[in-house]
Simulated assay, not measured.
Amino acid sequence: MVPERLLKHDFESFAEYLSQQTNRPVELVLEKSYRKLLDSLLADKIDLAYLGPLPFVFLTQQDPSFVPIVRFVDKSGRSTYTCCLADFRGDHINVDSDRPLLVSLPQPYSTCGYLMSEKLLNRHHYSLSNGGYIYSGNHSESALDVLRGVTQIAGLKTSIADKYHHLGLQVIEQSPPLPGFVLIANPRTVPQELIKTIHSRLLALDPQHTTKDAETTHLWGEGIRYGATEVDTSDYDVIRDMLQQIAIPGIDP
C-alpha cells in the first residue's frame, strides 16, 4: 500500500472536511494492509473507507449491505482508470516470445496487481504462474523495480507508468477503462441520514470549476481532490467477472 505518511497527508484534510459537514468527530485510521482494512470493516471497527474496485468487490461479496457513497473523478473528470503492463524500452522485451518473465506487481489487493496483469498477459498466451512475480508494495515501486533491473515487466496503473516514461518505462499493454475508487459506509455504524449528508455534500463540490471548492479540496490527495460522481454498482461487474476466471494466489475473498 501507499506509505503511511503519504496516506496521512492525503486524507487528513478530507477527514476534517467530513467532520465539519457532519458535526461529528472523524478519526483517520491507517491500516497496514487491505486485508486488515476489510477485516476491520466487516468487524464494524471502521465506519467509512476509501476502496479501489477490487477491495470494494471483495467487501460487498462478503457483505452486500455496505453502501457506496460516491465514486471519485480524476483531473479530467473521468471516474475510470486503466491498468497496464510496462517494460524498460532498452530491454526490448517481446511478451509473445520471451519466456519466462519476471513481473513486479503493486500488492495483492490492487486491481492492477495480479488480477489485471494476469488478464493482460493472457492476451499473449502467458500466465504469471508460468514465470515469477513479486509484490513491490505500490504502483511506483512496481515501476521502479523494472527500471532498477529487478524485474522485466511491471503491472500498474497507466497514469503512474506515464510518470516514468522519461526514464524509459513504456506501456506495452493496456486494459479497458475500469470503474474508479469509491467511498463506502458501514450502514450498521453510520446512520442513514449521515450517509445522505456525506453523499450530498461531496456531490455538491465542483473543485474543477469553482474556486471556493478548489480551495476546499486542494490539500486532499490526488485521488479525491477533483470531485465525485454517483456510484453505479453494476459498473463493477467487470471485476466480478474477472474473479470468476482468475484466482489470486493467497487471497481468500
Rank of each mutant, 00 (worst) to 15 (best):
residue 6 L to Y: 14
residue 10 D to P: 12
residue 11 F to S: 03
residue 11 F to H: 04
residue 12 E to L: 13
residue 14 F to R: 10
residue 14 F to A: 05
residue 17 Y to I: 14
residue 19 S to H: 06
residue 20 Q to V: 15
residue 21 Q to S: 13
residue 21 Q to H: 10
residue 22 T to F: 06
residue 23 N to Q: 05
residue 24 R to D: 00
residue 27 E to R: 15
residue 29 V to A: 06
residue 29 V to P: 13
residue 30 L to P: 14
residue 34 Y to C: 09
residue 41 L to S: 04
residue 41 L to W: 15
residue 50 Y to P: 05
residue 50 Y to C: 12
residue 59 L to W: 14
residue 59 L to M: 12
residue 62 Q to L: 14
residue 62 Q to D: 05
residue 65 S to G: 07
residue 65 S to K: 07
residue 68 P to G: 09
residue 70 V to H: 08
residue 71 R to P: 14
residue 71 R to I: 10
residue 73 V to E: 07
residue 75 K to S: 04
residue 77 G to N: 07
residue 80 T to D: 04
residue 80 T to E: 04
residue 80 T to K: 07
residue 84 C to A: 13
residue 86 A to T: 06
residue 87 D to S: 09
residue 88 F to M: 12
residue 90 G to D: 14
residue 92 H to R: 15
residue 93 I to L: 12
residue 96 D to W: 15
residue 96 D to H: 15
residue 96 D to R: 10
residue 99 R to N: 06
residue 100 P to Y: 00
residue 102 L to Q: 10
residue 102 L to G: 05
residue 104 S to T: 04
residue 104 S to Q: 08
residue 105 L to S: 00
residue 108 P to Q: 02
residue 108 P to T: 01
residue 108 P to H: 03
residue 111 T to A: 01
residue 114 Y to E: 00
residue 116 M to K: 01
residue 120 L to G: 08
residue 121 L to C: 08
residue 124 H to C: 04
residue 126 Y to D: 01
residue 131 G to R: 08
residue 134 I to N: 05
residue 134 I to V: 13
residue 135 Y to A: 00
residue 135 Y to V: 02
residue 137 G to T: 03
residue 138 N to M: 06
residue 140 S to G: 09
residue 141 E to W: 13
residue 143 A to R: 07
residue 143 A to M: 12
residue 149 G to W: 08
residue 151 T to A: 12
residue 153 I to E: 10
residue 153 I to V: 13
residue 154 A to H: 10
residue 154 A to E: 11
residue 157 K to D: 03
residue 158 T to N: 04
residue 159 S to A: 14
residue 159 S to M: 05
residue 161 A to F: 10
residue 162 D to N: 15
residue 163 K to P: 07
residue 164 Y to K: 08
residue 164 Y to E: 02
residue 166 H to S: 09
residue 167 L to V: 12
residue 170 Q to R: 14
residue 173 E to W: 06
residue 174 Q to I: 09
residue 177 P to T: 01
residue 177 P to A: 08
residue 178 L to P: 08
residue 178 L to C: 06
residue 178 L to S: 02
residue 181 F to S: 09
residue 182 V to Y: 04
residue 182 V to L: 03
residue 183 L to H: 01
residue 184 I to Y: 02
residue 187 P to G: 09
residue 191 P to T: 00
residue 195 I to A: 03
residue 196 K to E: 02
residue 200 S to E: 05
residue 201 R to G: 02
residue 201 R to E: 01
residue 203 L to M: 13
residue 203 L to R: 08
residue 205 L to D: 12
residue 206 D to W: 09
residue 209 H to Y: 12
residue 210 T to P: 13
residue 210 T to W: 00
residue 211 T to W: 04
residue 212 K to A: 10
residue 213 D to C: 08
residue 214 A to D: 10
residue 215 E to R: 06
residue 216 T to M: 12
residue 218 H to T: 03
residue 220 W to L: 03
residue 224 I to L: 05
residue 226 Y to P: 12
residue 228 A to E: 04
residue 232 D to Q: 11
residue 236 Y to C: 14
residue 239 I to S: 01
residue 241 D to Q: 14
residue 242 M to H: 01
residue 242 M to V: 02
residue 244 Q to V: 11
residue 244 Q to K: 10
residue 246 I to R: 01
residue 247 A to G: 07
residue 248 I to H: 00
residue 251 I to W: 00
residue 252 D to A: 14
